[in-house]
Measured scan of single mutants.
Amino acid sequence: RLHIEVEGTELMKKLVEEAKRRNLNVRAKVENGKWIIEID
């Protein structure tokens, strides 16, 4: 499991799109103003 903290929506969208393209499980949520992304 990969755990990433990202500031900025554009970067988050790119990460999520790339993960979906590779058929990975992606969860994204906002915590303290940062995107928290978990990829399995």
Rank of each mutant, 00 (worst) to 15 (best):
R1Y: 13
R1K: 12
R1Q: 11
R1G: 11
H3Y: 14
E5W: 12
E5L: 10
V6I: 10
V6F: 08
E7M: 12
E7K: 09
E7W: 14
E7V: 13
E7T: 12
G8A: 12
G8D: 15
T9N: 11
E10L: 06
E10S: 06
L11R: 09
L11I: 11
L11S: 06
M12I: 10
K13N: 11
K13E: 13
K13Y: 05
K14E: 10
K14W: 13
K14P: 01
K14A: 13
K14Y: 09
L15R: 00
L15H: 02
L15T: 03
L15V: 11
V16Q: 03
V16T: 03
V16F: 10
V16I: 12
V16E: 05
V16C: 12
E17V: 05
E17G: 05
E17A: 12
E18S: 08
E18P: 00
E18L: 14
E18I: 10
E18Y: 08
E18A: 12
A19P: 00
A19I: 10
K20R: 14
K20L: 14
K20Q: 09
K20A: 08
R21I: 09
R21N: 09
R22A: 12
R22W: 03
R22S: 07
R22M: 12
N23F: 06
L24I: 09
N25H: 13
V26I: 07
V26N: 00
R27W: 05
R27N: 13
A28R: 01
A28V: 15
A28L: 14
A28T: 13
K29W: 15
K29P: 00
K29G: 06
V30F: 15
V30Q: 15
V30D: 05
E31F: 02
E31P: 00
N32G: 08
G33N: 09
G33I: 00
G33W: 02
K34W: 12
K34A: 05
K34V: 08
K34Y: 10
W35M: 08
I36R: 01
I37F: 01
I37Q: 01
I37H: 00
E38A: 04
E38R: 03
E38Q: 05
I39K: 00
I39T: 02
I39S: 02
I39Y: 04
I39M: 06
D40Y: 14
